[in-house]
Amino acid sequence: MTHILRIDSSLKGEDSISRRLTGRIVARLAGAHPDARVTERDLSRGVPQIDAGWIGAVYTAPEARSADQASIADYSDRLLAEVKAADVLVIGLPVYNFGVPATLKSWIDHLARKGETFRYTQAGPEGLLKGKRAIIALSSDGTKLGSGVDFASGYVKHMLGFFGITEVEFVAADQMIFDAEGTIRAAEDRIESLAA
């Protein structure tokens, strides 16, 4: 059974283009795999930033955690468990000020845990979440995917690779300010061509 994890981060709710695209991607994948399980995580509701308390919590043995540490670690562990359980990650990436939304950055920070998603070896870092696929639905008003001012897509792709997820594809509705309808249509066509 295929397990799909859908991550949305846009603040625009029903008006969000990245949400529209992640919805279509999930529908395409689920249509090809009728037994697929879909887990949804909406980051726009807020994701706590990591801090010293987080470090103390997640790197303390579970049996030695205080009540506060257990609560902090439990939230972070749930995010991590969702990613570990998924075969495919479908991530909505609206470009905000040339970068990733703060909540998406915080989600990634929660996942960046030595011994869980990566480890250091003599040969350098090794990602521990191998064998997964990620499809990123990028939307932007003016930023072109892969351009010199796109600080979002490269970062997300790098971090996924750092975690061992190297099969990463982009569906882009970028530079919509110039031709929103045509750009969205091209992105939707791209979704229809994705291997399911």
Rank of each mutant, 00 (worst) to 15 (best):
A85M: 00
E63Y: 03
F151L: 12
S147K: 08
D109Q: 08
A196D: 03
T22R: 07
V168K: 14
Y59H: 14
M1L: 11
M159L: 13
H33P: 06
D68I: 12
K12W: 15
V149G: 04
V58S: 03
Q175H: 13
A81T: 11
R185A: 13
V88L: 00
V47R: 10
A152I: 05
R37Q: 14
A67K: 04
S66R: 04
Y120C: 02
Q175L: 02
P34M: 00
W54C: 10
T121C: 01
S106P: 03
E181P: 06
V149A: 03
I177W: 10
L104C: 05
R6N: 14
P101I: 07
D68F: 14
V38Q: 09
H110N: 13
G13V: 12
S66P: 01
F118W: 03
D150F: 12
E126H: 12
K12I: 02
S139C: 08
D74Y: 10
I25K: 11
T166V: 06
S9Y: 12
L129G: 07
A152G: 08
E116D: 13
Y96M: 03
R65T: 10
T60V: 06
R119S: 09
R28K: 14
Y120H: 13
A152H: 10
R37Y: 00
R20A: 05
A85I: 01
Y59K: 00
E188M: 08
T121M: 02
T166N: 11
P101S: 11
I165D: 01
M1F: 11
G99Q: 09
K105R: 14
G56N: 12
G182L: 02
I177G: 14
